[in-house]
Design a protein around this nucleic acid. Sequence first.
DNA 1: TCAGAGGCTGACCGATCGGTCAGATCGGTG
DNA 2: CACCGATCTGACCGATCGGTCAGCCTCTGA
Lengths: 182, 182
Amino acid sequence: MARPTPQTHGDILAAAARRFAATGYRGTSLQDIASEVGCSKAAVLYHFANKEAILTELMAPAITVLQSLDDRIAAQPDPASAQQVAAEGFVDLAVRFRREIALLRGEFPELLQQPVFAHIHEISERLIDAMAGRSERASARICALVLLAGIAETCGQFAEVSDEELRDALLALLRRALEPVH
Amino acid sequence: MARPTPQTHGDILAAAARRFAATGYRGTSLQDIASEVGCSKAAVLYHFANKEAILTELMAPAITVLQSLDDRIAAQPDPASAQQVAAEGFVDLAVRFRREIALLRGEFPELLQQPVFAHIHEISERLIDAMAGRSERASARICALVLLAGIAETCGQFAEVSDEELRDALLALLRRALEPVH
DNA sequence: TCAGAGGCTGACCGATCGGTCAGATCGGTG
DNA sequence: CACCGATCTGACCGATCGGTCAGCCTCTGA
């Protein structure tokens, strides 16, 4: 079946996205994905080297954007502008890639071990640092981490909210909640 | 070994808490726990009916307190006081049980299926409702969910911060960030 | 017509999981 | 001494996981 169409690659990717979002990465087996596509597990592994490669391809666009945000933050001359760029950039990324981020929901700790996310840990530390206004105060860092984790953890759950409305709500929240620089 | 001491039960519980915190519930095998205790996997299953029973016993105190918070919120006469009770009660709970909550980090979605957490979903919905000031506005609900999830996800990571300092920081954050009632 | 490449399958593999079970080892009791 | 119940062990079980492999089918182009 589906002999003329070599679109299976894309079908697998889409099916994997749905399953990962529903039951998580670890909670989804290659057989689950294969069943959803309607092919064999071996077919899935014909199109992708291994399970991780599926996740890598799904997350690649979001990772790229996150890395460019990291660069932009690093280029800011002072803590105040870094905080603003970090906040706006992160909200933008969270809204744009909320579907992808939702895939990771509840699996951050272990999933960060995967090569795809090799630098995520350092990047998120710099993000928190920037959002905390480069402050060393515990309250500022707690505040930044709670908001960042909260947004990452939940942004995928507002499927019925439009991009604009979600972005506005999150930006307003960050503006209220983040401690001002100095 | 350890023939005279029937404290193995407690040892297993403590070892499980450490392992769950380090690698998550699913990421910890019964053999991992047994190795940390220094006994066989069968010994672990002699003291606990199954893996889930270990988690249940670890989480029981926190669950009890959460349920009583739920009752207290339901007893509030108006949205404003419900919001305040929810915010203060949740922060208190998060700080007191940050160790237990940390065990669940990154495993919420699937772990909530377990019988121990049978009513957690409804309770957390009522918590969010109260923290959103009983409002139906998307921005209020987004705000409440982001903060609640963020606190739950991160409170276990501030081991070096004292209870008082953490509670003050989180309460201040909630007061700034939650949308006021009406 | 036929070789070959791309796409795919079913059978299989080793590892690991949670959990079971028969039995060994002990301290205490009669 | 014999017996008992609590504690614990090693061997084992079935299920499931990610991944491999030999080979089949179909389409294509020389």
